[in-house]
Nucleic acid binder design. Structure first.
Length: 791
DNA sequence: AACGTCACG
DNA sequence: ACGTACGTGACGTTG
């Protein structure tokens, strides 16, 4: 009742001053305040919409058949759990209401009981009689205080015009973005006017713009698009306009591309390699243009790539975020979003038009911003010694990856369907078996339900827990295998389910009906280490470890008259590690072409190299992996199913033997702590703020990332260099072979049969000479008629 | 939207 | 006493 005290008193005060008082409240307890002049406005939800009802004294009487203040008595009997008002146990809303309607008040009720005139009987009467104290106490608790001392006068409460820019500032600070729209606060910033003067808006016709671009040998632009989502998972995005910035005059232009062939008028410009293209997300631009039969040439500066190199863990690389980060410009302030709620409909300027205008303004601003962000980022790239990485590796990679996506990979849909049918049949059978073994039907995909079956119904031992329940992952199930035969079936079911949903049904949706190929996206600005990532679909995680899954690869085939040429770097990460750590033993092993895991086994287990067992080698391999990941005793122990003590012995022995690696590991964590970041061989940087965390776990993670990033990242750099070399050589020689896939240490080219020997040489040569390390780089090449056959 | 699981390097 | 191997993306369930 505390919060209510003031407004209870204030409402009465207002009434006394002769005002019509309205109380806004979500709490029906306030109805007790209603009079002829005091109205309570309360929201209620009706079919998703929230409306308000108004209750004055009349409405209260209509609704409850009681005077407002009698509602206090109702509450006294009924109680209110949320307000900690006990009421009389066993008396609810209905009873309380009818009792007060009958007796008028709690006092009268108990008077009647005293005189035995109440007419109540049984349990109910007993409860009421026994809880008299509670009833009176509850009434007191439920009464809104009307006598709080007030020192303010009406004048103090007068509503004044509020400081809108200030409120905007506060809302922005608190991320109250919805409120900013609701109160139409966009564009309230004080410096709004200044920013608008940043550039001149000039209407120019196409030919004038083209002349300027040619003169400048530079095209600073932003491509506007619209999307229509087709039923298939293939997004059809169309170019709707282009905006330009012309730095010499500080002018922006926008041209609309509304008709189908209009984009062709720009073909000459886009395909002119002499004109340096400066934009954002140029890989996307490349694809959009390619769809129109235009090949983007002269890819010069992509501001999202620049920002990525400056900080690869930056996940906000869209134009508006970059403007905020690098120019401290907030788009919404300069070009307010139209508030469609309070919009006045105007015949001559309808909402659609206004929105279109607003968008055009934004596109112009974007083009200007791209130029300014280029200036900023280029300076910073220089400062952090990353300009070469940017110009020689990541920018050229844009074209390589774009081309790769445009090429796509052919998929035999019929064969994929066949595989799908096979899986479905097996899946149906195994589902029945599982139901039978469990003794009931349940959703096997639900870890919650599965957990209940396994650990509650069947009482299997709980190996591991997750945040929200029992863990049922492979590791757990493998350990439970011997407990019950159902486990094996579940593992089988999981495998089949994964294959069918992700790799059959999932992949199907991405086959382009026109090309019969899958054109996966290859993203260059996602990973923290510099690797490429692939989406829609992810072609970098097509199964290979198990035979059944590997069959998915059979449906990926080269076109008629072509073959796949596939090249794999052998042990690239360990070679990189050997080279940057300068460990003499590992370098020697690679120079001599030794089996690196076998050598590690020999050293760790102190066994002559010829006597190393399979198991020793496999354990040593795990240690090698662990080293690359930034070893931890726990992790290695878990991986090998040995205790962490044993794991520590392995690690200690390993680091004893490979002392160069030991030194590298401790040096790199030290460097990372000191300078706050680590670098690859080509100066790709990753900041590791985790190392400064107060949390031990987070710091440990930081240390592992510090050890892993130079290794994984350098390998990624090398692969990019190799791809650029291959791409350029192919292009220069006018070969028809096309790179179609990259999987971190693997590159695949679709090759017309007549080019195959030439391509084999090119791949081998480009990959192995991508960089001069202290150890040789080896690329293993295989050719095949489908992906499955690639070794 | 977050989580658990599992596919890859 | 904590509770982890590094880097990704997609799917299905659940809140």
């Amino acid at each position: 009742m505390k919060q209510m005290m003031c407004f209870g008193t204030l409402s009465r005060y207002g009434e006394k001053q002769g005002l019509e008082v309205t109380i806004l409240s979500g709490d029906r307890d306030t109805f007790q305040l209603a009079t002829d002049n005091i109205t309570i406005r309360i929201p209620h939800t009706k079919g998703g919409k929230t409306e308000t009802d108004e209750y004055n004294r009349k409405k209260v009487i209509e609704t409850y058949g009681l005077e407002p203040k009698q509602l206090i008595d109702v509450k006294g009997l009924q109680g209110d759990a949320s307000d900690n008002i006990p009421g009389v146990p066993g008396v609810g809303e209905k009873t309380a209401l009818s009792l007060i309607q009958k007796f008028g008040s709690i006092e009268n009720l108990y008077d009647a009981i005293e005189k035995d005139e109440d007419g109540l009987k049984g349990k109910q009467r007993e409860k009421i009689v026994n809880n008299k104290d509670l009833a009176f106490m509850s009434k007191t608790l439920g009464t809104i205080n009307l006598e709080v001392p007030i020192t303010d006068t009406l004048e103090n409460f007068k509503v004044e015009e509020w400081d809108r820019p200030k409120v905007l500032e506060i809302f922005k600070d608190l991320n109250f973005n919805r409120y900013i729209d609701r109160f139409s606060l966009r564009g309230e910033a004080e410096n709004k006017e200044d920013i608008k003067e940043l550039y001149k808006k000039v209407d120019k016709i196409k030919n004038e713009i083209i002349e300027l671009i040619k003169k400048q040998k530079e095209m600073i632009f932003y491509i506007a698009t619209s999307t229509d989502n087709l039923p298939e998972k293939i997004i059809k995005e169309k170019i709707t306009g282009i905006s330009f910035y012309y730095p010499e005059q500080n002018e922006v232009y926008y041209v609309e591309i509304s008709e189908d062939d209009q984009i062709q008028e720009w073909k000459e410009i886009f395909e002119n390699a002499e004109i340096k293209k400066i934009g954002i997300d140029l890989s996307k631009v490349y694809i959009l243009l390619k769809q129109e039969g235009i090949t983007l040439e002269g890819i010069g500066y992509d501001v999202s790539i620049a920002a990525y190199i400056l900080n690869p863990t930056n996940n906000k690389l869209n134009i508006e975020s970059l403007m905020e980060q690098y120019l401290e410009i907030n788009c919404d302030e300069i070009i307010p979003k139209k508030d469609t709620n309070t919009q006045q409909m105007n015949l001559f300027d309808n909402i659609d038009n206004q929105e279109a205008e607003e968008k055009k303004e934004r596109y112009k601003l974007y083009a200007y911003a791209i130029s300014k962000i280029q200036e900023k980022t280029e300076k910073k790239l220089e400062e952090v010694n990353c300009l070469e990485l940017f110009n020689e590796i990541d920018m050229p990679t844009v074209e390589v990856l774009s081309d790769m996506q445009a090429n796509g990979m052919y998929v035999d849909e019929e064969e994929l369907n066949e595989f799908g049918k096979e899986l479905t049949i097996k899946l149906d059978a195994i589902t029945k078996i599982i139901y039978e073994m469990a003794g009931e039907e349940f959703n096997i995909n639900s870890t919650k339900q599965l957990g209940q079956i396994l650990f509650e119904k069947m009482k299997l031992p709980i190996i591991k827990k997750t945040k929200s329940g029992y863990s049922t992952d492979v590791d757990v199930l493998e350990k439970l295998k011997k407990e019950d035969p159902i486990i094996e079936q579940i593992l089988e079911y999981r495998q089949l389910m994964k294959l069918n949903s992700t790799y059959v049904e999932g992949l199907k949706q991405y086959i382009n009906p026109k090309t019969k190929r899958i054109h996966s996206f290859f993203h260059q600005t996602i990973t923290a280490t510099g690797r490429i990532s692939s989406t829609e679909p992810n072609l970098q995680n097509i199964p290979t470890r198990f035979e059944l899954g590997k069959r998915v690869r059979k449906v990926f085939k080269p076109a008629e008259g072509k073959i796949y040429m596939d090249a794999d770097y052998s042990q690239i990460e360990l070679r990189v590690l050997a080279s940057i750590s300068e460990d003499e033993h590992m370098i020697q092993a690679f120079k001599e072409g030794q089996d690196i895991h076998k050598q590690a086994a020999s050293k760790v287990f102190k066994t002559p190299i010829d006597e190393v067992t399979k198991e020793q080698r496999s354990n040593a391999k795990a240690v090698n992996f662990g080293i690359v990941y930034g070893i931890s005793e726990f992790g290695l122990g878990e991986q090998l199913g040995i205790g962490r003590k044993k794991a520590k012995e392995y690690i200690d022995e390993y680091l004893q033997q490979y002392s160069g690696i030991k030194k590298f590991m401790s040096d790199i964590t030290e460097i990372a702590k000191e300078q706050g970041y680590v670098e690859t061989l080509f100066h790709r940087r990753r900041y590791i703020p985790e190392l400064k965390s107060n949390n031990y776990m987070v710091r440990q993670f930081g240390a592992r990332a510090a050890m892993n990033t130079p290794i994984q990242g350098t390998a990624a750099d090398i692969m990019k260099i190799a791809m650029i070399k291959v791409y350029r050589k192919n292009k220069k020689r006018g070969l028809k072979s096309k790179i179609v896939l990259q999987v971190h240490d693997e590159m695949m080219i679709e090759v017309p049969i007549e080019e195959k020997e030439e391509i084999r040489k090119i791949m081998k040569e480009c990959m192995e000479s991508a960089v001069q390390l202290k150890v040789p780089l080896i690329a293993e090449i295989s050719e095949a008629t489908n992906w499955y056959e690639c070794k």
